Amino acid sequence: MRLLLWLLRGLVFFLLLGFALKNDGIVTLRFFFETEWRLPLIAVILLTFVVGVLLGVTAAVLTLRNQRREIRRLRENASGASASVSAISVRDTPPADYLRSL
């Protein structure tokens, strides 16, 4: 199984390497105020991929942080609620007219 996984990784690597070698043409990125960059196409694709990954990871980390805060707050509320419930005295025997109320 490990060998198969490494073969798959090698195949993906060589496919991406071939893609990079076939797309080595220079492209011009034009920005505002007549600013422009001249880069190989593969660099533009790689840069776009990296920026996308960074934005995705940032969004995931922020979501996880907010969820952990919410879980912590809910646990604190639940422990406070269970303490107040345990403070209420509960009778061991039902009231005398319990059977008539059914």
Results as ranks from 00 to 15, higher is better:
residue 1 M to T: 08
residue 2 R to I: 14
residue 4 L to S: 15
residue 6 W to P: 00
residue 6 W to F: 13
residue 8 L to M: 08
residue 9 R to M: 14
residue 9 R to D: 10
residue 9 R to P: 11
residue 10 G to C: 10
residue 11 L to A: 01
residue 11 L to C: 13
residue 12 V to M: 14
residue 12 V to G: 09
residue 13 F to V: 10
residue 13 F to D: 07
residue 14 F to T: 10
residue 18 G to L: 09
residue 19 F to G: 07
residue 19 F to P: 00
residue 20 A to I: 07
residue 21 L to R: 00
residue 21 L to S: 04
residue 23 N to M: 02
residue 24 D to K: 09
residue 26 I to K: 04
residue 26 I to H: 00
residue 26 I to Q: 02
residue 27 V to F: 05
residue 27 V to T: 09
residue 27 V to S: 04
residue 28 T to Y: 03
residue 29 L to M: 13
residue 30 R to Y: 06
residue 30 R to E: 15
residue 30 R to F: 11
residue 31 F to H: 10
residue 31 F to A: 13
residue 32 F to P: 01
residue 33 F to C: 01
residue 33 F to G: 02
residue 33 F to M: 07
residue 33 F to K: 14
residue 34 E to C: 08
residue 35 T to H: 04
residue 35 T to W: 02
residue 35 T to K: 04
residue 36 E to Q: 15
residue 38 R to T: 10
residue 40 P to S: 03
residue 41 L to I: 01
residue 42 I to F: 11
residue 44 V to L: 09
residue 44 V to Q: 03
residue 46 L to K: 02
residue 48 T to N: 10
residue 48 T to K: 03
residue 49 F to G: 05
residue 49 F to N: 01
residue 49 F to W: 13
residue 49 F to I: 06
residue 50 V to E: 06
residue 50 V to Q: 04
residue 51 V to T: 14
residue 52 G to R: 12
residue 53 V to Y: 11
residue 55 L to P: 12
residue 55 L to H: 12
residue 56 G to N: 15
residue 56 G to A: 14
residue 58 T to L: 07
residue 58 T to M: 05
residue 59 A to G: 06
residue 59 A to L: 07
residue 60 A to W: 12
residue 61 V to S: 13
residue 62 L to Q: 15
residue 62 L to V: 15
residue 62 L to N: 14
residue 66 N to Q: 14
residue 67 Q to E: 15
residue 68 R to N: 15
residue 69 R to H: 15
residue 70 E to C: 14
residue 73 R to L: 06
residue 74 L to S: 12
residue 76 E to N: 08
residue 76 E to S: 02
residue 76 E to W: 04
residue 77 N to V: 03
residue 77 N to S: 12
residue 77 N to D: 10
residue 78 A to I: 05
residue 78 A to K: 01
residue 78 A to W: 00
residue 78 A to D: 09
residue 80 G to E: 05
residue 80 G to C: 02
residue 81 A to Y: 07
residue 82 S to H: 14
residue 83 A to H: 06
residue 83 A to L: 11
residue 84 S to P: 00
residue 84 S to F: 03
residue 85 V to K: 04
residue 86 S to P: 02
residue 86 S to M: 02
residue 87 A to Q: 06
residue 88 I to A: 07
residue 88 I to M: 10
residue 88 I to T: 06
residue 89 S to H: 07
residue 91 R to V: 01
residue 93 T to C: 09
residue 95 P to K: 03
residue 95 P to L: 05
residue 95 P to Y: 01
residue 96 A to I: 04
residue 96 A to P: 08
residue 96 A to C: 07
residue 97 D to K: 07
residue 98 Y to M: 08
residue 99 L to A: 13
residue 101 S to V: 08
residue 102 L to G: 04
residue 102 L to V: 00
